[in-house]
Lab assay of single mutants.
Amino acid sequence: MPSETPQAEVGPTGCPHRSGPHSAKGSLEKGSPEDKEAKEPLWIRPDAPSRCTWQLGRPASESPHHHTAPAKSPKILPDILKKIGDTPMVRINKIGKKFGLKCELLAKCEFFNAGGSVKDRISLRMIEDAERDGTLKPGDTIIEPTSGNTGIGLALAAAVRGYRCIIVMPEKMSSEKVDVLRALGAEIVRTPTNARFDSPESHVGVAWRLKNEIPNSHILDQYRNASNPLAHYDTTADEILQQCDGKLDMLVASVGTGGTITGIARKLKEKCPGCRIIGVDPEGSILAEPEELNQTEQTTYEVEGIGYDFIPTVLDRTVVDKWFKSNDEEAFTFARMLIAQEGLLCGGSAGSTVAVAVKAAQELQEGQRCVVILPDSVRNYMTKFLSDRWMLQKGFLKEEDLTEKKPWWWHLRVQELGLSAPLTVLPTITCGHTIEILREKGFDQAPVVDEAGVILGMVTLGNMLSSLLAGKVQPSDQVGKVIYKQFKQIRLTDTLGRLSHILEMDHFALVV
């Protein structure tokens, strides 16, 4: 994948999101292997301009796509893939009243899908469409860049269908997702969380590099694949309309690839034109409109599966009536509230959605109805927002919020430890010299600072030695090549209790 991002070429006709291997024109390309080798690009942008032909009021008969309808489940399912879809609609009884809503608040519980998330729908649909058009064949390999849930859905379907599955996901995604993927037989590649989507090191860039190296491999490409919004247009939206008897006044959905909100909203605009569509985008993402909503100094966020630093091709923002931004604290607070007060075992993005819903639905009156999409299960986040310690460490809970008995030293300040200034190293000294210094002084790690004293990161003896043994660096290389740029900081005025929580999850903390 090139470091400079080429513009994806656009073909003359058809839909841009065809499933299957992508040609340089962004659509299915038939021909000899030699032709494909000559024409197939190194990668295709996940934010390529959409060429979708959908228009409100256009006859369904003019759609270029294969459409399906929700099917009634048999008493005995032939395999677990038949437990994807037909998820329950559940009334939220307490939270709406707590925040003064007059309307009825309903939750579409997508964590009841077989793999635990709304992404099971698009995973199965992308595979079925690729099999139907002859792209996927027995023994082929599926590769997908994902925040985890699409990966789980694909790995689940691949396990049943017999495909090899490789999932490329950023490091910030939970260990629970990784464990589930491994249990399903998927191979996992992790990428830096802070890598831009168009960087060769991003999950998108690495996935395309693997595709170019592995024979008979395919990126189904949830960011561009029409099967993504079509899955929701054909099934999720129809289920909502049936469950609500066609009567709903507002739908609120958090947005990642945009397939969920695009597919549902398009069908609702056709069948229930008075329904307002509300999009939820986390602070630090750029999906919301108008652009002024996205202006923030924050560039990272903890909530998973929603928000991006690019506009995915499948996201149709014209069908969203209003956007709201959400933050991590309210997302996790509301997710825990949904679990504790409503018994809905949902993930953090569901918290984002409901946090926005109780604001947006203030305009609705008694007798009206708001539906929220709860995308995934708490299963993926047992060591994250479900953990009091994690919430404390991230600053989303305060010590006084917890009532468990603490040891005698818990409320003492870090400054009472009488710490001395640490050994520091410059980023320009060599790895070999740094190892000598650390061994001589008896230290395992040291902060790396520039000549102005600005902290650049941390270097550890173990990481340097393993990097040297693996051949990633040489003793003569500058130590700046092996620094940890993500590390926890703590102030002298913070409590030892807070430091204790940090050290339970990290090997060190830097006192500043």
Score class of each variant (00 low, 15 high):
4 E>W: 10
4 E>P: 09
5 T>V: 01
6 P>Y: 15
7 Q>L: 09
7 Q>Y: 15
7 Q>R: 07
8 A>L: 13
11 G>S: 14
12 P>S: 10
14 G>S: 06
16 P>I: 15
18 R>Q: 14
18 R>H: 12
19 S>Q: 10
20 G>Q: 15
20 G>R: 10
22 H>G: 06
24 A>C: 10
25 K>P: 12
27 S>K: 11
29 E>T: 12
30 K>S: 01
31 G>P: 10
32 S>C: 01
32 S>F: 07
32 S>T: 06
32 S>D: 05
33 P>S: 09
40 E>W: 10
40 E>V: 07
41 P>S: 11
41 P>G: 07
44 I>V: 11
50 S>L: 07
61 S>E: 15
61 S>G: 01
64 P>H: 14
65 H>L: 01
66 H>K: 01
66 H>Y: 12
67 H>V: 15
70 P>A: 13
71 A>R: 15
72 K>L: 14
72 K>S: 01
74 P>R: 15
75 K>Y: 08
76 I>P: 10
77 L>M: 10
78 P>M: 01
80 I>P: 03
82 K>F: 09
85 G>I: 05
87 T>D: 06
88 P>V: 06
89 M>A: 04
94 K>A: 08
97 K>V: 07
98 K>G: 11
98 K>I: 14
100 G>Y: 01
102 K>W: 06
103 C>E: 05
105 L>R: 11
105 L>D: 01
105 L>T: 11
106 L>Y: 09
108 K>A: 01
109 C>G: 04
112 F>G: 09
113 N>E: 05
116 G>V: 08
121 R>G: 04
122 I>E: 01
124 L>K: 10
129 D>R: 03
134 G>F: 06
135 T>D: 01
136 L>K: 01
138 P>S: 11
138 P>Q: 07
140 D>Y: 08
140 D>Q: 01
141 T>A: 08
141 T>F: 14
141 T>N: 08
142 I>E: 01
142 I>T: 04
144 E>G: 06
144 E>A: 01
144 E>F: 05
145 P>H: 06
145 P>C: 06
147 S>N: 01
147 S>P: 03
149 N>R: 05
150 T>Y: 04
152 I>W: 01
154 L>S: 01
155 A>N: 07
155 A>S: 10
156 L>F: 01
156 L>S: 05
167 I>S: 08
167 I>T: 10
168 V>L: 07
170 P>I: 01
170 P>M: 06
170 P>L: 01
175 S>F: 10
177 K>W: 01
179 D>N: 04
179 D>K: 04
180 V>R: 01
182 R>M: 05
182 R>D: 05
183 A>H: 14
185 G>V: 04
186 A>I: 08
191 T>W: 01
191 T>F: 05
192 P>G: 05
196 R>A: 08
199 S>E: 05
200 P>M: 12
201 E>M: 05
201 E>S: 12
207 A>R: 01
208 W>A: 14
209 R>K: 10
211 K>N: 12
214 I>Y: 07
215 P>R: 01
216 N>W: 01
221 D>M: 01
223 Y>C: 11
223 Y>I: 01
225 N>A: 15
229 P>Y: 10
230 L>V: 15
231 A>L: 07
233 Y>D: 01
233 Y>S: 01
233 Y>T: 01
234 D>Y: 11
238 D>L: 01
242 Q>W: 06
244 C>D: 01
244 C>T: 05
245 D>F: 15
246 G>K: 09
247 K>I: 11
247 K>W: 08
248 L>F: 11
248 L>I: 11
250 M>E: 01
250 M>A: 01
251 L>I: 13
252 V>E: 14
256 G>A: 01
257 T>G: 01
258 G>Y: 08
259 G>C: 01
259 G>A: 06
260 T>Q: 08
262 T>I: 05
262 T>F: 04
263 G>L: 01
264 I>S: 01
267 K>F: 10
268 L>R: 10
270 E>N: 04
271 K>L: 09
273 P>I: 06
274 G>A: 15
275 C>M: 15
275 C>P: 04
275 C>H: 01
276 R>L: 12
